[in-house]
């Protein structure tokens, strides 16, 4: 980071984003609570606490904003976005496979391989095999022996 950019960034942009998000959540709560039609006959109704929480969020948004502008952005190490995206892609693949009936074992294999690649291993095929073996052991142990229903796909139905 160059010196003049640091003087420009006299605030923490993350704090600004957090403040905006908090305000947005408060607005959603407000909107959702407005739509409630039934209130209790006695005591406090279902709207009171959501309104209180929304109000608290607004105050916290201000608090986060104050912190963000009063200090310079703390030094944060750059991150490895590829690693994060790889794991998220692995999770997304797992969810998609399970949603469309691909079964637990291939889903576990893909997540395993994606994660270990994100952590720097460069042997995706080996890791796919290890992940599949792990998925198989889990499936046999939990679904077959302990009768816990794990998602089934073409492979699991053969077992």
């Amino acid at each position: 980071m160059t010196p003049d950019r640091r003087t420009l960034l006299r605030f923490d942009p993350a704090g600004l984003v957090v403040a905006c998000l908090l305000l947005a959540v408060a607005a959603v709560i407000w909107w959702d609570t407005e739509a409630l039609r039934i209130t209790s006959v006695y005591g406090v109704g279902p709207k009171a606490i959501p309104y209180a929480i929304a109000a608290g969020l607004v105050l916290l948004a201000i608090g986060n904003l104050v912190i963000a502008v009063s200090g310079a952005a703390p030094a944060r190490e750059s991150i490895d976005p590829m690693a994060v995206l790889l794991i998220l892609a692995g999770l997304a693949a797992l969810i998609a496979l399970i949603a469309f009936g691909g079964g637990f074992i291939p889903a576990a294999a893909i997540l395993f391989a994606a994660t270990s690649t994100a952590f720097g291993r460069r042997a995706p095929l080996t890791d796919l095999a290890i992940g599949a073996a792990l998925g198989l052991v889990i499936f046999l142990l939990f679904d077959k022996v302990l009768t816990l229903a794990l998602p089934e796909g073409p492979i699991e139905r053969l077992l």
Partner: peptide, 20 residues
Amino acid sequence: VIAILLAATVAVAGCAGEAL
């Protein structure tokens, strides 16, 4: 770790009887 998993499989299988 894998050995433990396998051992657990065998132990549990022995108690719970055959699969569905």
